[in-house]
């Protein structure tokens, strides 16, 4: 029966994808993209990939929609009709699609327990995690410890994106209007915003520190943190949000998270281990792993949250009118 739900979800995804391509209004396309991520997150849930689903929900439906909207607000929401029929891209896409389908022909069947993926590295992770890392969520143990260096790399990618946006767009300080007239009208939004802002932050903390046990971790928590502050900025205006978290502080936090992560690696080297070998951080290896994972997840959370918020600030600070 789950196969049926999978199929329906995939069909819906496909239809959504096609209509995103057809849309000329970029705002409408953005809304559909948000629906697209919701659908694919449900698909991940059905496929039992809970961590991925959580990430997709937080990033795809949340922050990327918001950033897309901020971009549209700065530019335009109409796609220009193409000058000529884009034949070359079409051919490239068709060939790519055919190659992908060709590639699937010899793939092990979906859910086949004899597939190579389930026989080589993965069983060792499943088997060794309780003894070596000592946390219930194997996904976290792979991401944060076995392949922790990849996670550092991904964090560096996000850091690069933040630095890039800052370099290209630059940050403009705005005049000190506390609250623009548009916001005054939204009384209900402000009340709800005030109510939800701490709840979202609380939930982000839960996701941050619960990552060892259930789905979650630094990336998702960081994004949820950023979303919380964005809600604050939406309900009370950018000026007030910047009074809460100034741009300078964000810049420091972006760097701090990265340095914390690298610092854990360096520290484990100084203590005589290899880079990112958490075992040496405490007296016994398992608690060393615990400590290491908590610290690096914290680093990830801080950097991701501040990069996302920084990008939002940078985009919105370029908005011409006072309506923020």
């Amino acid at each position: 029966m789950e196969i049926l739900i999978d199929t329906i979800l995939l069909v819906l995804l496909m239809i959504t994808g096609f209509s995103i391509v057809r849309m000329r209004s970029l705002l409408a396309a953005t809304m559909l993209t948000s629906i697209y991520s919701l659908l694919s997150a449900s698909l991940f849930v059905v496929l039992d990939a809970v961590d991925v689903a959580l990430t997709e929900a937080a990033i795809g439906a949340g922050i990327s929609t918001i950033l897309l909207l901020a971009t549209i607000a700065l530019t335009t929401d109409r796609e220009k009709p193409p000058q000529r029929t884009p034949m070359l891209p079409l051919i490239v896409v068709i060939i790519t699609g055919m190659a992908l389908i060709y590639g699937t022909l010899d793939m092990p069947h979906f859910g086949n327990p004899q597939a190579p993926v389930h026989l080589h590295v993965a069983p060792a992770y499943l088997h060794d995690t309780p003894g070596e890392i000592g946390i219930p969520n194997v996904v976290t143990s792979v991401l944060a410890s076995y392949r922790g260096y990849d996670t550092l790399g991904e964090l560096a990618v996000i850091f690069t994106a933040g630095a890039g946006v800052l370099t290209l767009l630059g940050y403009r300080t705005r005049g000190g209007n506390s609250m623009d007239p548009g916001i005054r009208k939204l009384l209900i939004l402000r009340v709800i915003g005030k109510l939800f802002f701490p709840l979202i932050l609380l939930f982000a903390l839960y996701v941050q520190f619960h990552g060892d046990y259930g789905p979650g971790g630094g990336f998702q928590a960081g994004v949820i943190f950023a979303t919380g502050f964005i809600l604050y900025a939406l309900a009370f205006g950018l000026g007030n949000a910047q009074r809460l978290i100034p741009h300078q502080l964000l810049r420091i936090m972006v760097a701090f998270g990265m340095l914390l992560y690298i610092g854990v690696g360096i520290e484990s080297m100084l203590l005589g281990g290899k880079f990112l070998e958490y075992n040496v951080l405490a007296d016994d290896p398992v608690s060393g792993q615990h400590l290491g994972i908590i610290l690096i997840e914290l680093g990830v959370g801080i950097t991701v949250a501040s990069v996302m918020l920084m990008i939002y600030y940078v985009f919105r600070s370029r908005q011409p009118e006072g309506d923020l």
Binding site: A57, A61, G62, A73, L234
Partner: peptide
């Protein structure tokens, strides 16, 4: 839970930003 919170914020974002 994430969905409820996030999709609310993004709906508000659509209306406030654009």
């Amino acid at each position: 839970l994430v969905y409820v919170l996030i999709s609310f914020v993004s709906t508000i974002a659509v209306l406030r930003v654009c």
